[in-house]
């Protein structure tokens, strides 16, 4: 068996599916598209059953633009809202059981490194705050301590949106929800601090208020995860259903939360910074 990357026999491309041909000819397969070109190229994400005006979908859509090599990426998710859109992408998606996303990703990444020596394969875990900070917490922490080389993206909507509005570890103190009628009594978990303690190479916290920034953060995180070590992105993606945000106000809410408490934060290790500068010497990497 050859360890070379599998490719389509020349001349047989026209027998591939329409979506694949569109993605190669007018999409991001083989050449990275920019956020400023959105609307003019075929996107990796397709039609999906997420709620109208969902900020999480916007974030997922921008993430797909940020991926440096979507054709060589595998997504791993778990139960939650995010997987409804993630399964509608032209990227292999693995539905991990609740709690084992990062364990599956660890094994997958190690396997891919052995199997595909001539091609970097990216593994991206994308799950909600419940899937990563509550139920998948030990898996996440251990993958970080083991320095597994893949990206973990938390879609932090601060609630269990899919099951009716229970509080999660990432819910703000005092937040009133349908299934937390007295308000949450504990503080929001400090996942950024935990990531720093466990030695994650690149940590970012952001809201989807700036599309170009979302794509660039995802791109950096995936590139650093190839060579240096684990990377983590925590993104505020409001649940307009459970927090009763009218859909035209979803972006106002994101800007509001960003300025009040969420902010944009990026922590990059020296090794990761040196690696980014080595592969993209022309571009100045922001601290």
């Amino acid at each position: 068996m050859s360890f070379k990357n599998i490719s389509i026999t020349p001349g047989w491309e026209k027998y591939m599916t329409k979506e694949y041909q569109d993605l190669v000819e007018r999409g991001p397969y083989g050449k990275q598209k920019k956020v400023s070109e959105m609307g003019s190229f075929k996107e990796v994400l397709e039609e999906h059953p997420m709620c109208a005006g969902c900020a999480m979908t916007l974030f997922i859509r921008l993430t797909m633009v940020g991926l440096p090599n979507p054709e060589h990426t595998i997504l791993i998710g778990t139960a939650g809202c995010g997987r409804l859109a993630l399964t509608q992408t032209s990227i292999p998606f693995i539905y991990g059981n609740y709690g084992d996303t990062n364990a599956v990703a660890s094994g997958l990444k190690r396997g891919l490194e052995i199997r595909f020596k001539d091609q970097a394969k990216d593994v991206v875990v994308m799950a909600g705050d419940g899937g990563l900070a509550d139920i998948g917490f030990s898996g996440v922490m251990h993958s970080w301590f083991r320095k597994e080389r893949f990206t973990t993206i938390m879609l932090d909507n601060e609630v269990y949106g899919n099951t009716g509005g229970q509080e999660s570890g990432m819910t703000e103190r005092g937040a009133l929800l349908k299934m937390a009628p007295k308000g949450k009594m504990f503080d929001k978990m400090d996942m950024i601090g935990l990531a720093q303690t466990s030695g994650v190479a690149y940590i970012a916290r952001l809201t989807p208020t700036n599309p170009t920034r979302v794509a660039s953060v995802v791109r950096k995180a995936v590139l650093i995860a190839r060579e240096v070590g684990p990377t983590f992105i925590q993104a505020y993606t409001s649940c307009n259903i459970e927090y009763a945000i009218p859909t035209p106000k979803v972006m106002d809410d994101a800007r509001d939360i960003e300025s009040k408490r969420y902010g944009f934060m990026e922590i990059i290790s020296d090794e990761a910074k040196a690696y980014l500068e080595s592969i993209e010497p022309a571009k100045k990497v922001k601290k």
């Binding site: 400023s36 959105m38 609307g39 003019s40 996107e43 397709e46 997420m50 859509r61 599309p211």
Partner: peptide
């Protein structure tokens, strides 16, 4: 082109590069 970037639906607000309109 801001609307093309902020729409949560994929390939929904499209852009006509010749007429320069979404």
């Amino acid at each position: 082109r801001l609307c093309t970037q902020y729409c949560p639906e994929a390939n929904t607000i499209l852009y006509d590069n010749a007429a320069k309109t979404a």
